[in-house]
Amino acid sequence: MGKILGIDYGTVMTGLSITDEQKIFSFGLISLYTEKLFIFLDPFLCTENIEKIVIGCPRKWNNKKEINLEKKIIKFIHIFHTKFPNIDIERIDERFTSKMAFYSMIELGFKKKQRKEKKILHTISATIILQSYLKKQEIL
């Protein structure tokens, strides 16, 4: 039984999270510059038993997709699927995850300077995206 990898894809920075083997909890993994994403993923996916990735689907308040970012995500998915055809890909609405991550940082006592750190924000957002997916699967 494999794990699930969560991705908060961004134009500059991308956050990653991962589930436990029972797929109950998501844990923040890492945030890195998007241009270096495959440099991390190539060896990582060869050593970890990942059966699925969940990528956030950016939407605006009015439920319309963020066109510019969505084009980049579609390109990433195409390259990913070419390299790793045996790993399923699912999408989930990621509206408000950045705000939820920011407020989580406040609740956890992060100092103002730490809250400006985009790496932490994207890792928490990826964790929220993945945990939302797990919760949704629990209901179904």
Rank of each mutant, 00 (worst) to 15 (best):
L5D: 05
I7G: 07
D8K: 01
D8I: 03
D8T: 06
Y9S: 04
Y9F: 15
E21N: 15
Q22T: 13
K23V: 03
F27M: 06
G28Y: 05
L29I: 08
L29Q: 07
Y33M: 13
T34R: 02
L37C: 01
I39D: 12
L45H: 02
E48L: 02
E51I: 12
K52L: 10
I55C: 06
C57A: 12
K60Y: 13
N62E: 05
N63R: 07
K64Q: 15
N68D: 12
L69H: 04
L69Y: 07
K72R: 11
I74W: 03
K75E: 13
F76Q: 08
I79G: 09
F80G: 04
F80L: 03
P85M: 04
I87Q: 01
I87S: 00
E94C: 07
E94V: 06
E94M: 07
F96P: 00
F96E: 10
T97N: 06
K99E: 09
K99I: 10
F102W: 10
Y103T: 11
S104A: 13
M105P: 04
L108E: 12
L108W: 10
K112S: 11
R115E: 04
K119M: 12
L121C: 05
H122C: 08
H122K: 11
A126Q: 02
L130E: 06
S132I: 05
K135Q: 10
Q137G: 09
Q137V: 08
L140K: 14
